Computed example of a mutant assay.
Amino acid sequence: MATTILMAAIAPGLALLSFFYLKDRFDHEPIRLVLRVFIFGALLVFPIMVVQYTFKETLSLNVFFQAYFNSSLIEEFFKWFVIYFVAYSNLEFDQYYDGIVYSVAVSLGFATMENIFYLYINGVYHALIRAALPVSSHALFGVIMGYYLSKSKFEKDPEKRKRWLLYSLLIPIFLHGTYNYILLIGQDWWLWIMIPFMIGLWVYGLNKVKKAQSKPYMSV
């Protein structure tokens, strides 16, 4: 049973990582570096859990702050921090699509470890909904983060570079917070809001993939 849960928890993350990795039309990133970033993302779960638990126990957080601060901001900042300091300045980060690969890797590392804990605690019958919602949403937040990180890295104008760097953090925080907010306030009707939100997120994310694919090297 434990093996089944582990496989069910890991499979969606690896499948989505493979999907976005293989969409690189020009020059695939080194597997070693991608896996390194993925593992960093998985390890982020532990400090993030401590920080989130501390804030939850010490502060009186309403639904809005729980969704946008204690979950979204903290998780996306830690993921952004890893990409910025591990991959952003790496010589292998030399194509527009590379930001998406690395950001998706760290996001899915985090989502996969989180999924392992969740399924072990709550049961493998949650695996399908977890794959469709939290795991895939983390991947798409990573796509959007990576797209704007690439725009920042390859931008020559210093002011625009700062703007894209800020967008790479703020837009995923907003989208992730909105996702959480729907879950927290939705009650019986949350799915009717979540379905169009996820469709829109997929359309938005794949649009960024297409744009990144059209800019192979260091050009804007």
Rank of each mutant, 00 (worst) to 15 (best):
I48S: 03
P216C: 07
S219V: 12
I129A: 14
V86I: 14
E75V: 00
L165I: 08
L17W: 02
H138M: 01
A111Q: 04
Y148G: 02
L73F: 15
F46E: 06
V82S: 07
V34L: 03
N90T: 08
A132I: 14
L6P: 01
V124E: 09
A132P: 11
V124K: 10
R163H: 12
R36H: 10
I74N: 05
F110S: 06
M198V: 01
N122D: 03
L91K: 15
I5R: 14
Q66D: 15
V101L: 01
D188F: 12
S168A: 14
L16P: 05
R32Y: 13
L6K: 00
G205W: 00
E92T: 13
N122W: 11
W192I: 15
F64M: 09
L149N: 10
E159N: 14
W189T: 07
D24P: 09
K151L: 11
S103M: 08
S103P: 07
I48Y: 01
I171V: 13
L149F: 14
T3G: 10
N122A: 09
P12F: 02
T112L: 05
S219F: 06
Y181E: 01
S60Q: 08
V104S: 03
I5Y: 09
L128M: 15
L206R: 11
S136E: 01
S89H: 14
E159I: 14
K79F: 08
L119G: 09
M198H: 01
I199F: 02
N180Q: 09
V50M: 09
L61N: 10
I5N: 08
Y102R: 00
F78R: 02
I48P: 05
L169T: 05
S60C: 06
D24R: 10
K23W: 11
E159H: 13
A11D: 07
W164V: 06
L17N: 05
L17V: 02
Q52H: 12
Q213Y: 04
A127L: 10
L128S: 14
S137D: 07
G41R: 07
P216W: 08
L17A: 04
R130Q: 04
K156L: 12
I144K: 04
V51D: 06
Q187Y: 11
I173M: 04
N90A: 13
Y148C: 04
V82Y: 05
K56T: 15
Y125I: 11
L22F: 12
F197G: 00
M218E: 15
F20L: 10
M49Y: 14
M145W: 00
K153Q: 03
